[in-house]
Amino acid sequence: MDGSDNIHSKETTRLWRAWRTIHEMVSDRGYELAEEEIKMSLDDFRAKFCNGDGSPDRGRMQFSARPSESMIKKFTPPPTASNPDPAPECGTIWVEFCPEKGSIGINVMKKFVEHCSNNNFKAGILVTAVALSSQARKVMTVTSQYTLIECFLEEDLLVNITHHELVPKHVLLSREEKNALLKRYRLKETQLPRILNKDPIARYLGLKRGQVVKIIRTSETAGRYASYRLCV
């Protein structure tokens, strides 16, 4: 095997793993994805996204997903007198791999945000090979009121962290479930234990400030043990 071919195959494998993890992530968040989309084999991936010389083409690696029924239900705020038919707070998600290899500046980020808002995506995930510049990160946070933009590094997606044996199961609570929890334990929001916004699991699940996540651990004495954390 040639040296250059080897480099491409290594890169392709890495991209394939990131591609798989991002699909698992999107599906774990509650979006609809077909099984064969999530569990694409390396050969299929190569056939679909590689150029003639074996190098992967990131420009073609993109997909969108619609939220499932249960997700829409979870993200719809309870109806009130003034707003009897509230709109769900989630929508179609757009995932794109960034072909840029040097460094990612304002213009690349702006293009992505524009694409998301023009096509009415409620959320967008940009997977990059290199880190963003600090101003590009600012673009991401400034526009996040309209569409939720997230960025992941390829190297962070090589393994799915939720599949690790030491990572307990995290379940996002809906607004009603959160209120029921606070009522049951007579708590104020701030009295819950906290989880940081930038925590890897919080990033995986796309937690926003104020959302509560239920953590289910196995316990030797109790079988299962649930704890709750508020995202800050």
Binding site: I104, G105, I106, N107, V108, S133, Q135
Partner: peptide, 11 residues
């Protein structure tokens, strides 16, 4: 410094 980084992003 951010400006320098930004210009470098544009090569």
């Amino acid at each position: 410094l951010d400006l320098i980084e930004e210009r470098n992003c544009l090569n």
